[in-house]
Design a protein around this nucleic acid. Structure first.
Lengths: 261, 261
DNA sequence: AAAATCGGTTCATTATTTGAACCGTTGTTG
DNA sequence: CAACAACGGTTCAAATAATGAACCGATTTT
């Protein structure tokens, strides 16, 4: 892992749940030497990517990221482009829908919509990195992404989030195989208790998977009919979104989806 | 300059005017070896900070910056905090107002407001890095920022943007001295022709300058009265904004401002 | 008051970054 | 159409920059 990657991974530790991180905490999280982490943070600070809380000396994300995001979205408005589809799907199903992107070996939500029509509601943090082995979106990426990614996830310990998370690599491998056969993934309370999720892949140019479209429902509303309604809607939407982003669902997957009907 | 800084500086090259950059172009801009630039870009790409246009192989900012900006603004909503003040000031003066932040040795707009009440209008790109020697905001930062920053700018060649830009270091030094005496800076068509701008400092915690508040007007609307109206409004607003951000205008500057009345 | 923890610093050792030269492809030009 | 230039990308020895154990002073905990 290069120096640059190590520094950028530090930035990835920030989430809305943990927006400020101290030096020692960073050392723990990143499993690197304190001096190394410190110097990386200093360099990030000098470039405005992090700044320090002057009272606590903790680090938080800096204003530089705001400008970059502004340029990105202004010149390549992917978030805006997908928002329409995600909003529509959420309205149609009456459930939380999110579109997440593969970023290296992590997965990051790009856009999330939730039409509040039911009493219970799934909590979803748009600014949190999602685990690969514990979400339906992650399973889709593992199933249809690169072999490297899958091996990398299988080789590391699988963190237990909910008590029902898949932590056995062999089981995970089986689930990935099932996902390949289905053309979509589901995940029963793997990340958060009481939440069931279903996901389909989004493809960009050159037959490469770039992200996933997913629906999350409280298990109280889960039923055979509901699931098949969601799966059908996801298939159709992920085809349209892929096309909108300049890609297309590979024919193999389209064929699987058609046969399932 | 460390490896991390070199890589981050690459990201800073992206603006809405130049959202995609090829390898050779990057080599030119960054004045580094092609192999070095290439490897840095690869590492940035692997972390989602840039992505490649699959047709042209050019690089553009990646989706990772979107998530980071989302975390930053969600947990530390500075942009939102200042927007109110900037909007008000723009409405009051009927001119373009922007608040920009110092990021290392660069200056980046954080928020910009323009109430379109006049026929002519100043063009302003919120996603562009601004030059220090050619804008009133930059002059303020040079005058009230660190000595290092000033020396660093004075030591490099001063790019001529408009034909009327200050390019002589001695002249720049004089203007900085004047700015220190006034407590605010003005700049006559230094960056863009036909645009006159005035700026005051914004201070954060610990008496440190963190940015500037500036008004830009077409020279056609420039007049003695207008300028003094703007200067008064800027002084008052930058005091309020500094306080809103947890800082305060240093007493020396307050005194200068009061004496000018 | 002793011990632990915090952010930050130092310097010899080490490992990663570096850049000149090179490769294959694409598009341009005499 | 052959020669050339410009592009993105790759290689490997040489050199520089990253590294981490130990240390520092200041707080906080015990």
């Amino acid at each position: 892992m290069g120096t640059i990657t190590k520094a950028l991974k530090l930035l990835n530790e920030f989430t809305s749940a943990r927006p400020e991180i101290g030096l020692s905490e960073f050392k723990m999280i990143s499993k690197q030497d304190k001096a190394t982490v410190y110097r990386h943070l200093i360099e990030l600070r000098e470039n405005g990517f992090v700044e320090q809380n002057s009272n606590t000396k903790n680090y938080r994300l800096g204003p530089a990221v705001l400008r970059l995001a502004s340029v990105r979205e202004r010149t390549f408005p992917m978030r805006e482009a997908v928002s329409k589809w995600v909003d529509d799907l959420s309205r149609q199903l009456g459930e939380l829908v999110h579109l997440s992107l593969l970023q290296g070996d992590a997965m990051s939500p790009l856009y999330c919509a939730d039409i509040q029509v039911h009493g219970t509601r799934v909590y979803f943090d748009e600014a949190e990195l999602l685990p690969m082995h514990a979400t339906s979106s992650g399973l889709v990426l593992l199933a249809f992404g690169s072999e490297n990614l899958l091996q990398s996830v299988l080789s590391k310990p699988l963190k237990n989030y909910s008590g029902l998370t898949i932590t056995n690599p062999d089981v995970l491998q089986d689930v990935v195989t099932t996902t390949r056969r289905n053309g979509y993934a589901f995940c029963d309370q793997g990340y958060e208790k009481e939440v069931f999720s279903i996901a389909t892949p989004i493809y960009g140019k050159e037959q490469k998977i770039i992200g996933t479209l997913a629906v999350a429902v409280p298990i109280s509303r889960q039923s055979e009919d509901k699931i098949s309604e969601i799966v059908d809607a996801l298939k159709s939407s992920s085809m349209q979104v892929s096309i909108a982003l300049g890609g297309a669902i590979p024919v193999e997957i389209e064929r699987i989806w058609e046969n399932a009907r």
